[in-house]
Design a protein around this nucleic acid. Sequence first.
DNA 1: AGCACGCCGACT
DNA 2: GTCGGCGTGCTC
Length: 649
Amino acid sequence: MSEHPRIARVRPDSRVPQLDREFDYRIPPGMTVEPGVRVRVPMGRGSRVSSGIVTALVDHSDYAGKLGDIEEVISDVVVVPHEMSRLLEEVAVRHAGGVSDVLRLALPARSVRVENAWRQREVPPRQLPTVRTNTEIYEPEAWDGLAARGAKTWCELPYGVNGTGVLASDEVLANLATHTLAGGHSVVLVVPDWRDLNRLRPMLLERVGEQFLAVFDSDSTPSERYRAYLRCLEDDPVIVLGARHAVYAPVSKLGLLIVHNDADDAHREPLAPYPHTRDIALIRAEQTGAALCLTSLVPSIAVQRLRQMGYFDSCRLIRQTRPRVIPTSLALNSEQGAGQARIPSMAYTAIRDALRAGPVLVQVFRSGYSPGLACSECGDRARCTRCDGPLVARKGRLSGQCGWCGEMATTWSCSACKATSHRPIGYGVGRTISELGKAFPGARVIQADGDHPITSVSNAPALVVATRAAEPVADGGYAAVLLLDGQSMLQRPSLNAMTETIEGWEWALSLLRSDAQAYITDIDGPVVSSFASGMYQDLLGRELTHRQELNLPPSSKLAVVEADAATMEKVLTVVANKTPGVSVLGPVSGPGLSSRVILTSSYQEAPSLARELRAVVVAQSVARKKGSSRMKVSFDAQSALDDFGLDAQ
DNA sequence: AGCACGCCGACT
DNA sequence: GTCGGCGTGCTC
């Protein structure tokens, strides 16, 4: 007859699938707990203890057995507020994963020192920063009430760099966040990688001060991370800036979620259950009613779909000023000497002139080997005649095989030109630097790539050769840009080849001076036409229709399952019986004994597919046999549709 | 995952 | 006669 519940529902921190649920425990007399705190509870036989999070307090337990006692309260800080708990559960359910797995992504390790200091903090009254915006480049009042009305929108970003090396697009992001904070709302700004983070951090710091900024930086120490996390839990609104994991930040008064460059691959979580920032943000915005803003120069295919559905609207610039793109061809290059073999004469002259005015960017793609095949006549990517998947070469065989459905392409013909022979695709950039050195004698050559990270260069003339996504920012912008290797980038056997190529080109454009020009070499076709004109509507619309017809993301939900042969059989039986609308590609046996299957489902049927797959994961884990590898499920892991190597590996 | 309970071979 | 092999099953 106690007036307070004496039973706590606890979710133990366990990566064992069958333990990833709630368990009831008695709260011993004298102990105080509340939902969201970390506790230690006995788990399993003996005196095994596990840490866990209290999810609820209840009066009665449905459990028939004898309840155990909570062993101790690790900390009375509510580290998982209810709103966050709901998000974690929904993300887990939709990805056929465990809540503990998601929690591990969202919650940094505890630091006792940091926590004690935080608990004793003196909170001075914080004065919200005053608004400083450049909203005038958008429709009047485009940003007003964004948070209040819970807008779901794509926000178009401007091109260009100012004299001190600040990107116009970063300016917009910082202002959007500051503007919303000034209205008393918290903002969560998620960027793809550390370069974006390092550019935006000082800008936000300058605008709102450290009192209103929490940076989730993967480079920082565990205690710094926990410090930023605790700041979120305070009552005052805050701007959270970070990569992937920041999307979970448990801020109070959430008004706006910003996901910058949602097409960037870095938004894909590489740890189970492999959620994508965009999907998490969509769930969170829906659950909380907060505004969601996806920002980029060009909408992603996912954005295109959300707009066509009417779920998203657009926040367009009043006037977008985009540098001019000039397609050039090597074919006109016959009279050139060997020194500038890869550079069309038109571009060569322009770059030589631009090098007198300032730095010139040369964008190249990473070298690498691809087992993919292309039509030997027209050069188009060779695709499976049955499911349109990419054909890949097989060791010692002449005919290719489909990387998705495993179909042998013994009688193949090109869908574009009807030719029947194909050749391997290969791309390399090893010679670029020395070639350019010869072509532009006397020019200072700066190399920027993963091994030579350079974040900025001055406005002095130089030839900056950078791999995609490693381009430094030049003060005032580049005087010209030369885009190389577009053809091989476009032909990559990846579902995202087109969008990633466009993203890389557009990013390079945004680094240009406003009066500068971009030269793209030896490539044509619809993608380049769109790039040259900056008109992507038709291209994106067609691509989305194409994916609709083929049941591919983002028009469908896609689940990739990896398991041993016996488990795979079970998966296929369950899928056939419980989710009749789901279509199956494969299974294809990969390296070792495991096999892989690609399941495509409608958005409507995806939840039940996830539920059924999760049930198999749990059953598989319970009935685990020695040496059996555990099964792996990932939703929308589109890389599975890429160059799946088969026996070519 | 751990950890204990549970029924069959070689030892003091 | 016991000590102990790790197969099977559960964890509030």
